[in-house]
Every structure is written in structure tokens, then in C-alpha cells.
Design a protein around this nucleic acid. Sequence first.
RNA 1: GGUACCGUGGCCGAGUGGUUAGGCGGAGGUCUGCAAAACCUUAGACAGCGGUUCGAAUCCGCUCGGUACCUCCA
Length: 489
Amino acid sequence: MQNKLYIYNTLSRKKELFEPINPPFVGMYVCGPTVYGDAHLGHARPAIAFDLVFRYLQHIGYKVRYVRNITDVGHLENDADEGEDKIAKKARLEQLEPMEVVQYYTDRFHTNMNQLNVKSPSIEPRASGHIIEQIEMAKKILDAGYAYETEGSVYFDVVKYNQSHNYGVLSGRVFEDLITTTRELEGQEEKQNPADFALWKKAQPEHIMRWTSPWSIGFPGWHLECSVMGTKYLGEQFDIHGGGMDLLFPHHESEIAQSVAANGKQPVKYWMHNNMITLNGKKMGKSLGNAVSLEDFFTGENKLLQQSYSPMTIRFFILQAHYRSTLDFSNEALQSAEKGLKKLLTAGHTLDKVVASDKSTSNIKELRDKCYEAMNDDFNSPVLISHLFEGVRIINSVKDKKETISAEDLEILKKTFHDFVFDILGLRDEETKGGNELADDLMKTILEIRQQARAKKDFATSDKIRDELVRINIIIKDTKDGSEWSIEE
RNA sequence: GGUACCGUGGCCGAGUGGUUAGGCGGAGGUCUGCAAAACCUUAGACAGCGGUUCGAAUCCGCUCGGUACCUCCA
């Protein structure tokens, strides 16, 4: 690869040169959604952030296997009195089979992802499809002596592990604090230490989702699925593991401990964490009750929203911030993203009509290089976008004949624009184009009539045509080279 | 309390020891029958207080404010 890509590695808290374990292949695992409710804006962040990573790695020539799981089993809900499976609870409330709920929300998640133009991962494994492997891994950890069984449940022995390894490498947690700073919580008495975590949990009678294991009828512990599915599809050691910053501890820390205990190897070379989307400065989360679903954004049906926002507006809004920064949502911010996106995409169309000259007044090759530099610097999409807006300025200036561009540079600019706007940022044009020949022909005739009226200074007629067209969402723009039309939402 | 981190102009957001981020909005202008679009110019910032330095928004310390995690939610 001629591109020197630097990735911020949470493990070292530094930007590191990206060198895959087995080039040109790259293995990437990202924690996917728990499918017990509709996806909200908070879900869009990691999906889009790692879609960008996936797209860029492919663009610069890597063969990427991207695994993003669907979590559909066995986890407890914090507001439940007794430990109760999130999905099981939802199922009981709606009188549905748990897997019916899973299917429903998985489908809706996929629909949202398609709307956001998020590429499907290479493999999208479900936790419920890997119960056997999770039992196997728990056995391995037991055999290695890093876990113990109590009352049909299996717990990871964090204290034992930390004697020879560092439980806290990733999160920077101080081990002594972990085992001393504890709270009184229910269901802790089975554990030897409060910091220990479950590998297998015996099911209570009210649990609907349950599987047979050597220890009890129950369900796998919280962190095991990711360790298992990452290992199964990407190997004991793979390149990139991603997820939200909120998963750093204890989830990812525990994943490392499980993999090291079972396989004796550090599982991941580069850990990447995206930051949160905030609403009035607070993390947006379902459990916090301030989540706005993606569906709501697309339809505008939410008290917090002044209007609807298209999927591409949401995508552009997210890409305008660096993935490791918090991003504060507001109507004003989304509206400015909407306008900025339109400006960018319009320039893309203008580019097709631009005419080349003998030489260029702007340095197009430098612009292209800057775009790569931005992406190579830990996927800095906001800086990339600022360079693309420089491209927009050039395109419009050339169109207005205030600047010129050579034929060679024009090709470079077109390729750069196409590569970065569509392939890498994954934006797409949502505007309903005229498209069909009938509309084109009709508009051509109408515009000719209007032009004749204007030539005769019959502005009453020309304005009437324009105003009437506005009513059916057709916008006329008069330029020096004639009139243009487009269909707006 | 512990861990990680943040505080940038009206809004959203890059940057990070010396030089323009960018978008939206504002002001002025060019173009135009008008409108729109486009282009040009422009105003406005680095929470506060100290320190290091020839020079700090950028490094260090303190103060204030904020966020995430520390939960059998993954």
C-alpha cells in the first residue's frame, strides 16, 4: 500500500501506522446492535463510522472481512427487579416469541442501514447461532483455570487472571480500585469477587431464552459472544476491533481477558472507539429516554424535531465530525448539514458540465493528495469534507469562467470527487431527478416558451411559468447559459 | 471517589507551539428584468487565572464547568 494510514489505537492511546497482520487481508470486528428496539441516532454513529473505515480500507486496496454481530440473546436489564433477559421481557410484553422480536427489529435495523447507505458487513453473525462455540470457549477458560463454576453459573476469575495478566490494559482501570470500589448489588453473592463476570448464567424460571450446557440450562454471559464470533471468523488474532466508547469497559476489557485466557494471545491489534452522539450535552441512549429513532428523523415525527431529515443528511451530519469526538445534535446543526450536503452534491452535477481549458488555475493534484492525507490521519472525515468544499469552490469558479482547469486535471477532479464523495464517504444523491425522457422533453418545451417570453420582456408570463412549476416542486434557475430545472422535495 | 476525556466565533465542528480549517448563519459586493444559484470580500474564537517560551488556542499547573465508563445492558 502506498498510503500510510494511521489509526488511533485505544490500546496505546496513540495514532499508530496501520500494518495488517496478514496483508493485503484485514479482519475487522465491530460490536453490532442489540435487536430489542428501533435503531436511533446513537446506533447510526458506529455504523457509519466503521462503514467509513470499511470503505476506505477497501478503497486503498485491502481485502477486508468485516464482521458485525447481531446481539439477540441472554442479557439482563438494569431496571428489572429480577435478572431478566432484555429480549425475553420485550417478548412477554408484546406476546411474541423472542425470535420473532429479534427478526422484526433485525429487519428494521437493516432497512435503516440501507437508507443510510451503510454497506452490509461481510458476515453478520448472531449470538444465538453461536451458543455451542460460546460453551466451548467457556470450557477452555475453565480448563485454563481462569474461571469457576458456582450454582450452575460460570464466572471469569478476574483476580486470578490479573496475577499473570493485566485486567485494565485497554481501559486504564487500576485493578485495586476495581476490586475495592464495589457497590452492593443483587446477585453478587455467587461471585468470589464483584469484579468477576459471567461466562454462563443459569436461567431463572422466567427466562424464555435458554440453552442446555454442561453446567445448567441457561444463557451465555455478556462478553462471550464477541470473543467467540471474532475468533471464529477472523482468527485468534485479527486487525481491528471497533465499537462505541461506552463499550470500552467492561465489555472490551473482558473480551481481551477471555481471549487471552482461552487462546493465550492478545486478540486484537488495533482497538477503535467511536464517541457518543449527545443531546443537550448528554449521551443519547434508549435507557436514558432521550433517544430519537432514525425513523423519527426520516419522518420528522418527534417533538424534538422541527422538520424531517433525510438519511443522507444524517449521514453527512455524522461525517462532519471526527468519529472520536462527541457530536451534539440540534435542529440548527442538522439544517446546516442539509444545506452543506446539497451544495456538495450540486457541485458534483456541475462538474459534469465543466469544460476544460489549456491549463489550470488551481492545484488539483494537491487537492487530491490532501484528501488522502485527511483520511490517512485516523479517518479524518471533517477535514476531508473541508477539502471537498475547496473542490466545490473550484468547480463553481470554473463554471463561472473565473477559473480554468486542464483536461487532465478535470479528470483527476472528477475521479477525486467521485471516489471520496460517493465511494468513501458513502453519500448518494437523494434528489429525485427528472430522469425520464418525457419529463425532459416537456421541460425543454416549457423552458423554451418561457425563454421567448423573457426575450419579449413578458415577465408576467415567465414568472407565472416559474411560480406554477414551483407548486409542483420544480425549481427553475436562470443562468448565463440558459435555464436549468430540478425537482426539489 | 477512581478511570478516560472535553470546554474553539451566533450554531455545528477541524486543528494543535509561529502561517485561512470547513459548513450553516450575518454583513457588503458581482451577476440578474426579478428570483434563485454561484462567485468575491468581510466581521467574529480558542472557559478563567498563573507558568514555560523569542512566541501558546496549542505545553505545564491550578480553578470553574461538562461528558462517558466504573451495572449479570451489550
